[in-house]
């Protein structure tokens, strides 16, 4: 099994990938702007970064993740998903940097924000800095409001609005939760998400 680790992002962290690793971000206690730099300076290693967050009324989150490829044949996937409730404010900078000698790098970033509340603010900055042509790199970033049709459908099946929302949010996070192979870590994160959602 791959190495898996929870990273509590409460201060700036530089993480060196030495073997194939799953990194799961704990953003639940992040209060000030923080930065995670993932360094790939050993050939052939890979990393899957998974980050999930829920911002309740008036909460703020400001974080940066950087995948820095300095060696050959490394790969990285950054998967970040967030839910915004009333008056919350999120800022996420997701960077992919591929240096000159880092050929055969594959690096991707996927950043999705699901907006539930009103008066939200969201700033997304997905960045690519590519200095080598023998690479595959891309990012996708979406911000969208929860689908009212889906809520309506669930409500017509007897669910309250809150329950309907929760089901959709669960589905939104489930895609990433299922990718956490380490069951202990998955449960810890799932529990934290659930308690945040029920606040």
């Amino acid at each position: 099994m791959r190495k898996a680790e929870i990273l509590k992002l409460t201060q700036n962290i530089t993480y060196q990938v030495v073997e194939d690793t799953d990194l799961i971000l704990d953003l639940f206690e992040t209060s000030s702007p923080v930065k995670l730099e993932i360094i790939f300076d050993k050939p052939g290693v890979s990393c899957h970064l998974i980050g999930m967050y829920v911002l309740n009324d008036g909460e703020k989150l400001d974080f940066t993740t950087i995948a820095k490829h300095e060696s050959r044949n490394t790969s990285c996937l950054q998967d970040v998903r967030g839910v915004l409730r009333d008056n919350s404010d999120s800022k996420y900078i997701g960077s992919i940097i591929i240096e000159e000698n880092a050929s055969q790098t594959e690096s991707f970033l996927d950043d999705s924000v699901l907006v539930l509340g009103q008066g939200t603010k969201n700033q997304s900055e997905p960045i690519l800095e590519i200095k080598n042509n023998d690479v595959k790199a891309s990012h996708g970033s979406t911000t969208g409001r929860i689908n009212e049709d889906e809520i309506f459908y669930l409500q017509s099946r007897g669910l309250s609005k809150k329950e309907a929302e929760n089901i959709i949010v669960e589905g939104f996070f489930e895609k990433l939760l299922n990718q956490i192979e380490d069951t202990t870590i998955r449960e810890v994160i799932a529990e934290k998400l659930a308690s945040k959602l029920n606040q």
């Binding site: 915004l84 939200t120 997304s124 960045i127 595959k136 790199a137 996708g140 970033s141």
Partner: peptide, 22 residues
């Protein structure tokens, strides 16, 4: 290089951004 910034200050917006380098 790609440096997009998205500042979404309303809750009803639908934003999609995609970039690839190859």
């Amino acid at each position: 290089e790609t440096f997009p910034t998205m500042k979404i200050n309303d809750s009803s917006a639908q934003i999609e951004h995609e970039a690839t380098v190859s």
